[in-house]
């Protein structure tokens, strides 16, 4: 039994498709987690990331359905994510409704809405064309996973450093971090705390929408309401796992994507391990990783604390 397991793991690790799947999952998580990282730096926690991803995927499908262009569809996806983030931001950081309540409701609403519209409109999608970077793509095992992906994948190589630059090298980023660490002081020094927070959520909506649309065109080419299937929550866990550093967050995305891809590859290679355990594995890994690391890291001091002037 145990030897079986190790030989299975060995096979999975030496199969190229593991890395290709892993890279797709990691990219999905990374799109969402990068935006959510920015949003959490400003002191907000958005469980509506799941809804933003799903909305992005559905808007992407709609965009392709009406324009037959993947590029336009990706833009649609970003807008789809943005729309959800606007609702989240306005409700929780202008109207002062509880951010978890709003996020949860949005998740349920978008799930219902996407499912409903999917059956009514039934949008068609396709695979995005692959863009192979010469020479690099020939690296064994990793080559195709990192340099032979559908073209929207490469947006990530720009998005992640850009997000880092935005948060740590611009005035906007400084004000954002001030809003996340000490909103009272930020407010006194003239920063509109809730405005910065809203903007950071818009950013999360844009990147998550991109991520959802990317996943649609990279992996499934047909919309289904289970396309995201709780992976938005894993993206949030990746931010926590990474201790609110961008590189740690990316590490979390890769680890959790590994668990997701491991489950898939094992089935693909025809191993008969316990199917239920495999399905639960990514979630168990996520819980386990948070149990080990959650106490060793320091969150933004005002994370998930609403800011209302005069109330502490």
């Amino acid at each position: 039994m145990l030897i079986d397991f190790f030989s299975a793991v060995g096979d999975v690790l030496s199969s190229e498709s593991t890395y290709i799947n892993g890279a797709l999952f990691a990219a999905l998580l990374a799109f969402a987690a990068t935006g959510e990282w920015v949003a959490e730096k400003s002191g907000t926690l958005n469980i509506s990331v799941e809804a933003m991803l799903l909305s992005g995927a559905f808007a992407g499908a709609l965009g392709y359905h009406f324009t037959d262009s993947v590029a336009v569809a990706i833009v649609f996806g970003a807008i789809g994510g943005l729309l959800i983030s606007i609702v989240q931001a306005e409700m929780s950081h202008r109207l002062t409704a509880d951010q978890f309540v709003v996020g949860l409701t949005l998740n349920i609403l978008v799930f219902g809405l996407a499912g409903f519209l999917d059956r009514e409109i039934d949008p068609q999608a396709t695979f995005a064309s692959k863009l192979e970077i010469p020479i690099l793509v020939d690296i064994p095992l990793f080559g195709e996973a990192l340099f032979g992906e559908p073209w929207p994948f490469y947006l990530l190589y720009g998005l992640v450093p850009f997000s880092w630059w935005l948060v740590f090298r611009t005035r906007w980023g400084l004000e954002l971090r001030a809003a996340g660490e000490n909103p009272q002081s930020a407010d006194v020094s003239g920063i509109d705390v809730n405005r910065r927070r809203r903007q950071s959520i818009y950013y999360a909506g844009l990147t998550s929408g991109l991520g959802g649309a990317f996943f649609l065109f990279a992996r499934l080419a047909a919309f289904d309401d289970s396309i995201i299937g709780g992976r938005g929550f894993i993206a949030i866990a990746a931010v926590i796992f990474g201790g609110w550093t961008l590189w740690g967050t990316m590490g979390g995305c890769i680890l959790f994507a590994g668990a997701l891809s491991f489950q898939l590859s094992l089935q693909g290679l025809g191993y008969e391990l316990n199917a239920e355990l495999l399905q639960a594995l990514p979630f168990l890994v996520t819980i386990g990783a948070m149990a080990i690391f959650a106490k060793r890291v320091r969150p933004p001091a005002a994370l998930a604390r609403p800011f209302i002037r005069g109330l502490k």
Binding site: L95, V102, L106, I108, G112, L113, F116
Partner: peptide, 18 residues
């Protein structure tokens, strides 16, 4: 499609938060 009731539910909750 009967999933419209999920939509009604979500919209109701969201509206009642306001």
């Amino acid at each position: 499609e009967s999933r419209i009731t999920d939509v009604v539910q979500g919209l109701l909750v969201l509206a009642l938060l306001v």
